[in-house]
């Protein structure tokens, strides 16, 4: 079951980066060594049948290309830090919005909070992610973690559960 959820998270993240920003990603084992450059982190809280939070972390080297592609700007250096952060916030928002029905079923109604960018020196979470996946990108890496209040894993009839049952 945890593997099925992590697989679903990775698949949604990969599809979203591809469609939203033309950035192509490959799966990496979650235990792979952390990226050597700093990470930009964004969190999206959600509530509905389950409450929780999705965190997307992108290595600094990958963010300019992602933001430039989303905005259709040829030279990533033209973008401000705010524009880059906003691009990452929107990426996290779209990943979260597409992930929840895949995990909890198409009839589940969720409300998403405004994506929040964390300061670079913000401490790591205390662990306990329901899913943790890392994707390799051309210019860095992306890590996506799903946290669910009360722990446990999705049980709402989404694809992850179907995968676990098969």
């Amino acid at each position: 079951m945890p593997e099925a959820v992590a697989h679903e998270v990775a698949e949604v993240a990969r599809e979203t980066m591809e469609k939203l920003a033309f950035v192509f990603a490959l799966d990496e084992p979650a235990a792979a060594s952390p990226p050597t450059d700093p990470e930009h982190r964004v969190q999206v809280a959600f509530r509905g049948p389950r409450r929780g939070m999705l965190e997307v972390a992108l290595s600094a080297g990958a963010l300019p290309e992602l933001a430039a592609n989303m905005l259709g700007v040829e030279n990533p250096s033209e973008l401000s830090a705010d524009e880059r952060t906003d691009a990452l916030r929107e990426l996290a928002n779209v990943i979260c919005g597409n992930l929840l029905p895949r995990l909890f079923g198409e009839n589940a109604e969720f409300t998403l909070g405004t994506p929040v960018a964390l300061r670079e020196d913000a401490p790591e979470g205390a662990g306990g992610a329901a899913a943790d996946c890392r994707l390799a990108l051309e210019n860095g890496a992306c890590r996506v973690r799903l946290f669910l209040e009360g722990g446990g894993l999705p049980g709402g009839g989404g694809r992850a559960e179907e995968g676990a049952a098969s």
Binding site: N93, G97, N98, N107
Partner: peptide
């Protein structure tokens, strides 16, 4: 929107609005 709830999308469409899912082409 990224909205994925079928019931909420149907409610919106019933009210006469169109729906495009993010990410869109």
């Amino acid at each position: 929107s990224t909205e994925g709830s079928r019931s909420r999308i149907e409610r919106l469409e019933t009210s006469g609005v169109r729906f495009i899912h993010k990410p869109f082409s």
